[in-house]
């Protein structure tokens, strides 16, 4: 491992670090998103974030000083707004499946995003990078922001450990037995929005879906108990990001695609392992 790292340009160290932390964060988020059966949320929030980026960029058009600030704020604000909109869709009240609600908000965000791209007079490279992700987006400040948000996410999961556990199992039971589930769920979605918005330039709107889904789905296959699932999913997320990055670097392949393929491969391996283990039981 040391030899491999020695061959890397030192420019890539913050990139690798940010990739690993982003993988762990999305892996951790995935435990809850997959457990609550709403994998589409990542795509939905990330497209909202893209819309925020585009309109933030339009606000500071031709102003290189303001541009990074308005685009970052736009990303976070749009993600939080979409997350709060999702929190207001209550299946028992609207009689609308949460995934249908997610799909509708996703469609709206997609429409707003492409409308914004249409308004944009300049280069569209940055916007398309946001769709696919680009590790060149990562500088020292971005790496620190990603790390800080990862710490906030870990703190949230630790502090609301018992509430998040029952939310995963049943929101109905949580609500009926006096858990402040709407409050915790809303907090979680807002945090989800911010974490995804911060990680988006690195991972990309489309790839984020695989990093949320595959590590968590793999962890659910092989683990017993809540804590092991959380640790394993975060580890699988980190592994996907690191291995994907190294493959792409040494084989000169697109990074996003490599990370997606590694994460799916991890899921496939755990499924095979689970099937073999079940046969021997």
């Amino acid at each position: 491992m040391n030899n491999i790292l020695m061959q890397l340009d030192s420019y890539f160290y913050p990139v690798i670090l940010a990739s690993i932390i982003a993988g762990a964060s999305t892996g951790l988020l995935g435990v809850f998103i997959i457990g609550m059966r709403m994998p589409f949320i990542g795509t939905c929030i990330s497209h909202a974030s893209m819309a925020g980026f585009i309109y933030g960029g339009l606000l500071a058009f031709n102003n290189p000083v303001l541009w990074p600030i308005t685009t970052s704020l736009g990303c976070v604000l749009a993600s939080v707004i979409s997350a709060v909109s999702l929190a207001t869709i209550r299946e028992d009240k609207t009689r609308l499946d949460k995934n249908v609600g997610l799909a509708i908000i996703f469609c709206l965000m997609l429409g707003i995003t492409f409308l914004g791209i249409g308004f944009n007079q300049g280069s569209r490279t940055d916007m398309l990078n946001l769709l696919w992700g680009n590790i060149l987006f990562v500088d020292r400040a971005r790496a620190i922001t990603i790390a800080v948000m990862a710490v906030v996410l870990i703190l949230f999961v630790t502090l609301f450990n018992k509430e998040m556990k029952i939310l995963l199992f049943s929101r109905s039971i949580a609500a009926a037995t006096g858990v402040h589930e709407s409050f915790v769920y809303c907090l979680f979605l807002i945090l989800c929005g911010v974490v995804l918005a911060v990680n988006l330039p690195l991972i990309g709107g489309l790839m984020i879906f695989s990093l949320i889904t595959c590590p968590a789905a793999a962890a659910y296959q092989v683990c017993t108990g809540y804590i092991p699932v959380i640790i394993t999913s975060s580890f699988f997320g980190m592994l996907s990001a690191l291995a994907g990055f190294l493959f792409s670097y040494f084989l000169n392949l697109p990074t996003g695609a490599c990370i997606v393929i590694v994460s799916v491969a991890i899921f496939a391996l755990t499924t095979i392992y689970k099937n073999i283990a079940d046969r021997h039981d």
Binding site: S170, I173, Y226
Partner: peptide
Amino acid sequence: EYNPDLPFT
């Protein structure tokens, strides 16, 4: 109303 497929003990 609950998710019995999660690996909770």
